[in-house]
Design a protein around this nucleic acid. Sequence first.
DNA 1: ATATAAAGTAAAATATATTTGACTATGTGT
DNA 2: ACACATAGTCAAATATATTTTACTTTATAT
Lengths: 66, 66
Amino acid sequence: MGKNLRMKTARAAMDLSQKELAEAVGVTRQTINAIENGDYNPTVKLCIAICKVLEKTLDQLFWEDD
Amino acid sequence: MGKNLRMKTARAAMDLSQKELAEAVGVTRQTINAIENGDYNPTVKLCIAICKVLEKTLDQLFWEDD
DNA sequence: ATATAAAGTAAAATATATTTGACTATGTGT
DNA sequence: ACACATAGTCAAATATATTTTACTTTATAT
């Protein structure tokens, strides 16, 4: 699985650390880190929560990135 | 969680049964049924597989449906 | 040089997505 | 009435997402 660079970029654009994004969506820092590094596939519910904080849509952050 | 009527509609448009869609994406019929009825949240990888078979995007089938 | 925030990584435990097997209900066709 | 495909649902088992704890690295600042 490839890295999710779009998510990392969107997070940087909102000036959030992995820890801050994790707290905003209610998961741990390691989960955010693993998603950005493509280590495993998150739940769509978590994806939606991340999208809302980063002000992006599912297609913008997670489409064709599997 | 609400039912995913958009997914059910898209599946009908492709003339696929729950069983056929399940086989096409490599999961069981019960999993497809549970997703359509909103019983739990699937993995984004599974959502993407479903979208490809139904010729839709993540936003079209899964955005704002949590 | 030292301190601190941020990121990367890993092993073991827990929560939950998914499977398996089975049963019921409804409709459609013969 | 009978057979069959489709859909809905449930309990127990399995696979995997996520947590917890902890350690390492890199960069930035004092």
